[in-house]
Simulated scan of single mutants.
Amino acid sequence: MKAMVIKRYGKDVPLQQVEVPIPTIGEKDILVEIYAASINPVDYKIRDGKVKMLLTYQMPLIVGNDFSGKVLKAGAKVTNFKIGDEVYGRPRKTRIGTFAEYLSVHEDDVSLKPKNLSFEEAASLPLVGLTTWQAFHEILKLKPGQKILIHAGAGGVGTFAIQLAKQMGAYVATTASDKGYELVKSLGADEIINYKQQDFEGILKNYDAVFDTLGGETLEKSFNVLKAQGKIVSVSGLPNRKFAIQNNLGLLKTILFSIVSRKMTALEKKHDATYHFLFMKPSGEQLSHIKKQVEEGKIRPIIDQIIPFEDAQKAINYVETGKAKGKVVLKMK
């Protein structure tokens, strides 16, 4: 089968199209013929070696973290799917590789795709949907009437997050440029901060929560908008001691993460707030909840471009510019 691989870590390492064997399946796995896959920042973070503290991969590595397609084979103990089912999913982190013609994936990591979406639209949702679902339902426990700041509202995660937060009854502020203004407004954002002209931390106050996808200085400034006992969830900040303990990462990484996240710990104490680093987990069950919301018209996918599989490198380069509004999807079939 055709697949896009990297052969080593590094920022300038190109994707290479190669021929590799079709993967085998275990008794709880399904073999999916991939119709579409989406580009996510984690794809180039993996390439750059930025997640090596959390995950190490053997090279060459087939990249890609979410997909849609059709079930070709089912393992002997698979109970939820049959041959021909149209599915979407995010494989567990040890089994990534969606930039390929076929994928072997555990049935627990997959859901039937929303019936009202194309394969390209469905492929745009698993990673951003699960990330947001876990941030809002499991960590923030967002309640109606609460105020949340969602950074980069016109991005892949942001466009989904605004919609889910509104469905949960929250008041949503977001940051966007002039080019993203109309999009985030159409998704339901209540307050829009033009980050090129305004300082969000000087305008927004007494927020219950912040959802950060940018990290760095933006994350640090976000503490200023929180009320006492507010919460920040970040997918781009540094993992901390709490994350290491919750994920049973062992003493060495617990100490290491305590050291690298000292600034976050100091900001937590200064602002009487809590900081959570989120490394999303696959869940077919949560994708089924998202499927229901999509089929009911409560959430819609936002796609910037659909790009042929052969041009995967161009697609990653474009997403890295930060200019994409919504998701960029690779079309296989």
Rank of each mutant, 00 (worst) to 15 (best):
Y102S: 00
E86I: 11
K221Y: 06
S234Q: 06
K179H: 13
K205H: 13
V328I: 15
T174V: 01
F309V: 05
V5L: 07
I62N: 06
D190I: 05
P41V: 01
K298S: 07
I232D: 13
G49W: 07
D85K: 05
N80L: 14
G155M: 06
I139Y: 02
E33T: 08
V63F: 01
G89N: 10
H289W: 11
F67M: 14
L125Q: 04
T24L: 11
R92D: 15
K179R: 15
L187I: 09
S68G: 02
M332F: 15
K70W: 03
H151G: 01
L204S: 10
P239W: 04
I25A: 12
T321A: 07
A165F: 04
I83G: 07
Y275F: 12
R90P: 00
Q313G: 12
F277P: 09
G69F: 03
I83E: 15
G158H: 00
A312I: 03
K327V: 00
A189Y: 06
G326N: 10
H137V: 08
D48Q: 07
I307F: 09
Y102D: 00
G49N: 06
A161T: 08
G284A: 07
Q246M: 11
P41N: 05
K298N: 13
T159W: 03
A170E: 03
K242D: 14
L142D: 02
V128I: 14
G129A: 12
F67W: 01
V184S: 04
K253D: 11
T94E: 14
I6T: 06
P41L: 00
M264K: 11
E320K: 15
I46N: 06
H106T: 04
S236G: 05
Q17M: 15
L287I: 09
G153Y: 01
G169V: 00
F243C: 12
G169L: 04
I306E: 13
V128F: 01
E27V: 13
Y195D: 10
P91A: 07
A74Q: 11
T265K: 15
G64R: 03
F309A: 12
